[in-house]
């Protein structure tokens, strides 16, 4: 792996901090930048509001906690709601990291894994889980491959039976055909002998 520079750079910011990579911060309120005071006050207000709304969850999370492994066990049963077909536990986008944090918070609040999954399905739809939740679509998921396999087996069985009957028939015909040809051969031989006499 070719490396141009190896620098003892400052530690990377947490990947989901502010939602974007630090190099994309442009203007406005950046950490340590006090030039946009109204913006900072607004952000603080939003922060207080979010903390207040989530207080019960946060308190319970502190009390019980949810380990990374518990979060993975739930996340691996789900798919990223925005990037299709990528399991949530593997997805490293900012949105997915936040969703995993939310799973941790919900688990810590005492919800069961199924309740957590149900809440995501209610918000984002069936495609966040690996098995459709709608009863009709779920039934379709399972029924067609099973029916197709049974049908293939039935066709195979029918074919064997048909061949079996056809074989028996052809053997009978074959036997009859052998007799006829033998008779004809015998007749020709007798004619030849008679002619020689």
């Amino acid at each position: 792996m070719p490396i141009r520079t190896i620098l003892p750079l400052p530690p990377a910011a947490p990947r989901h901090l502010y939602g974007v990579h630090p190099k994309h911060w442009r203007g406005g309120a950046q950490p340590g930048n006090l030039t946009d005071l109204p913006g900072l006050i607004a952000q603080f207000g939003i922060f207080v509001l979010v903390v207040f709304i989530n207080l019960p969850v946060i308190v319970l999370a502190q009390e019980y906690g949810a380990s990374d492994n518990e979060v993975i066990k739930v996340a691996e049963r789900m798919y990223c709601p925005v990037c299709e077909n990528i399991p949530l536990d593997e997805c490293q986008t900012t949105a997915c990291l936040e969703w995993k944090d939310e799973i941790g918070a919900q688990l810590a609040a005492g919800r069961t894994p199924q309740q957590v999954i149900d809440s995501f399905v209610a918000r984002f739809g069936d495609h966040v889980v690996g098995l459709p939740q709608d009863p009709l679509i779920r039934t379709l998921t399972f029924i067609l491959p099973v029916l197709a396999t049974l049908l293939a087996l039935a066709v195979g069985w029918h074919t064997f039976r048909r061949f079996g009957k056809a074989k028996q028939l052809s053997l009978e015909q074959g036997a009859a055909g052998a007799d006829l040809s033998e008779d004809s051969y015998r007749q020709r031989l007798e004619n030849d002998i008679r002619a020689l006499r």
Partner: peptide
């Protein structure tokens, strides 16, 4: 059904 579904590994 106008529903997006994902069929997972399991």
């Amino acid at each position: 059904f106008d529903r997006e579904v994902t069929i997972g590994a399991e």
